[in-house]
Design a binder for these strands. Structure first.
Lengths: 208, 208
DNA sequence: CAAAATTTTGTTAAAGCGTACAAAAAATTG
DNA sequence: CAATTTTTTGTACGCTTTAACAAAATTTTG
């Protein structure tokens, strides 16, 4: 297992890598995973095509870094929102907000991410990439509900909660419906309110 | 607009078309939309590769016929289930059963169909293919609930219902979770029971 | 300005679709 | 029923896209 000899990163190298990752992100949003080709990434970045494999091992490395970058941003936003929350209920709402970022819940983004999810079910490497996101979601929900519910009830709730989030994103990607952010959130909040026992909701609402 | 001159279908032609569609279906389930190539379809069918465009316009026609075939089968099953039902509630359960066919709710099928849905959000021709399915679902739900709920409440319910179905299928396609048919249905039934007002459920349960 | 880093250009190889054509089989006709 | 035509089946090839790499050119740096 020969590792690539790592020299210290130059400023230019860091700049180019970010430029390429950003370009990849724009192409990805516009054309989905299938439309993401090396040539397009490079020309979107205003660089010539061969440059990609100078700074990255291959196209997948660019894509993977892009996904990781997005996961990081999302996770940070959620952490911030969670910090601001003063009750379990507010923390749940923070999770919902985090999973439906106002600036990014549009048809393009939804289509693009669904295309990645689709690939992940046929390709373990892609699946691994998405796992941190799901793990974090589950662990966040669990830690909020643990004081009030047994673990198997939490798991059941979690399944429905995660499925609903995914399903709403999937529906958002479809052209014939026009699903607004408000609608999506309202459906999800509705679900949370009704899926959790009243007693739990009452307890969650108390500030702490 | 020159139409293709249509000769009468020979027996052989019908046989080959079905063979190719079936082969395409097997490949599709195994490898998803991305893995579905003309060459694989033909060799899976035990025929040589050029034959595909002799019996079909192109690869997409095979795929589209495959999807239509599936839609037909699904729709027929649902109609049968609906006929057997004796109350609104049973009709709702029939819809759920129809959308989670025991023989077909597996990881392979889920992954494959999600890959088609992903493509549909970037390609209008694919999107059109899926529309009948959604229309039918919505119209079925509406006709069951119309006597008891205003249209906008029905639409709201419908959105969550459809999203939950899609979401559960999407989660089924992921390797790290092992979502059983029973679990999926239980989450969905739970949702229905809680999202609809008690009064409506009571009325739905009355035989008619 | 020489060495190193960066970028561009061009090439190669693989995959995949669709078409052109060849071969075989079946049907038709004199 | 033999010759001819038509239909059916199968193969081969060309075109395009794309990723990856190599080599050459340019720019930067010490």
């Amino acid at each position: 297992m020969q590792q690539k000899p790592k020299r210290p990163r130059t400023r230019i190298e860091d700049i180019r890598r970010v430029e390429l990752i950003d370009a990849a992100h724009r192409i990805f949003l516009k054309e989905g995973l299938r439309g993401l080709t090396s040539t397009k990434i490079c020309s979107e970045a205003g660089l010539s095509q061969g440059i990609l494999t100078y700074y990255f091992k291959d196209k997948e490395e660019v894509l993977f870094e892009m996904v990781r970058m997005n996961n990081r941003i999302l996770a940070n936003e959620i952490v911030l929102n969670l910090r601001r929350a003063h009750s379990g209920w507010e923390r749940l709402m923070a999770l919902i907000d985090g999973n439906f970022p106002a600036q990014r819940f549009d048809k393009q983004a939804a289509s693009a991410w669904v295309s990645l999810y689709a690939e992940a079910s046929h390709n373990e490497r892609y699946a691994r990439l998405l796992r941190p996101y799901y793990r974090r979601l589950r662990s966040n929900v669990s830690s909020i509900l643990r004081p009030y519910l047994e673990q198997d009830k939490i798991d059941h709730f979690n399944l429905g909660f995660a499925a609903m989030i995914d399903g709403l994103w999937l529906r958002r990607g479809h052209a014939d419906i026009d699903l607004s952010l408000a609608q999506a959130k309202s459906v999800l909040i509705d679900y949370v309110e009704k899926a959790l026992p009243h007693e739990v909701i009452r307890l969650l609402s108390e500030p702490n």
